[in-house]
Design a protein around this nucleic acid. Structure first.
Lengths: 223, 223
DNA sequence: ACCTGAACACCGTTCAAGT
DNA sequence: ACCTGAACACCGTTCAAGT
């Protein structure tokens, strides 16, 4: 239905068509042949604009990171961190099938590293420096991307299936909390973890101790 | 080389062969045909023991969760939470290619829900009840699985590529922290985030306030 | 009950050929 | 410079046939 005739291809147009296709029909629909069809072109033509399927996925990742809007201007550093984490989840939920495909790829291009720089800057503004700034950044992205991927895949016990009933009944704590496991409140869940992580990072050892009390064992690398 | 003749197939033996194959040759090697070869059998025979490729992946997930050892006996509740999170990462690093494939699948079988029950029990023992116990559980798994997947895929800027040099130089905070971004210290990074998350959850509103000080805004679901 | 060969409708990628 | 058809070496799954 959407095959256009004689389209002038571009790396950009290929990536946009790929994202639209995945959004519309899921990750499984993204094949070189199918994407060619979508653009009114033979699969092999795509190789003039992307090196192969892997590079196509890299490009998809770039496009999605490009939709991230962190915007550090004039905000409290901790709010930048919040916006970053929420932004990752927003992009993921806007393109769930695409995020499934590329959400965990490491970033490497200049444009993709821009938000990373913003976040690292906010952490330094909070007095978190050196390895701990990097650890805090990794913790924040790990949480945000992990949560978004779990949300897309479906949280454990979120949808109460018939065949899970006996298993649930046999497990006391799962059974006791079943209503809460099945209640769909992903926003509240995400904010809970985000608040916890930010509060915890706040207790990490740094130059000026937090006002709340004595430093806790938040960031000792024990084990 | 490893094709055995006339193997007696079992759901179990199929899953074990699948895990071994993925461990040895990567996620891409897991095809029904290739797995059949591995077991000295035609691909179609596998369908007598698993419903299809999807069910095969479900089974792989079960096997991996089965390797989790949380062991709640006689430990401090918070140490159970730590063991759970570290256990997820350990399993992921023991089977990186398989974890890539199934690490984000929701759990549903009785056996897979056992560690979930243990973790929820530990949270309740800490006085964290109701929706917050569920949120804390989700935060912990989101972080642990997200971190492990990012570690497997490769952290951003972890391996300093030539073509990233200009991008790094142009971004002040990335440039300043480049040595720490490139230093490979995943254990310390994981423990940092885990400690932060646990410290933050510790400040979530609950019956008995933590000894350290006044309750912080750790778990208000603002936004 | 379990295994099989042949078949169907697909894949990504290479390459020589066209314009 | 960009697009193409044919070809290669694959996929998952169905189905009728074997034992």
């Amino acid at each position: 239905m959407s095959t256009r005739r004689h389209a002038r291809l571009t790396r950009r147009s290929v990536l946009e068509a790929a994202l639209a296709l995945v959004d519309r029909e899921g990750a499984g629909a993204l094949t070189m042949r199918r994407l060619g069809d979508e653009l009114g072109v033979a699969a092999m033509s795509l190789y003039n604009h992307v090196a192969g399927r892997g590079a196509l996925l890299d490009g998809l990742s770039e496009v999605m990171v490009g939709e991230l809007d962190v915007g550090a201007d004039g905000q409290e550093p901790v709010d930048v961190l919040r916006r970053f984490a929420r932004g990752i989840r927003s992009v993921a939920l806007a393109h769930p099938h695409a995020f499934e495909l590329v959400g965990m790829r490491p970033l490497s291009t200049r444009a993709s590293l821009e938000p990373v720089d913003t976040v690292l800057g906010s952490l330094r503004a909070l007095g978190i420096e050196g390895p701990q700034a990097v650890y805090a950044y990794r913790a924040l992205t790990s949480y945000a991307r992990g949560f978004a991927l779990a949300e897309i895949a479906g949280f454990t016990l979120e949808s109460a299936a018939e065949d899970e009933a006996e298993a649930v009944a046999a497990l006391p704590h799962v059974a006791a909390l079943a209503p809460h496991l099945q209640r769909r409140s992903p926003d509240a869940a995400f904010e809970f973890g985000l608040d916890a992580l930010l509060a915890g990072v706040d207790f990490a050892p740094r130059k000026d101790q937090p006002p709340g009390g004595p430093p806790r064992k938040a960031a000792e690398t024990s084990r």
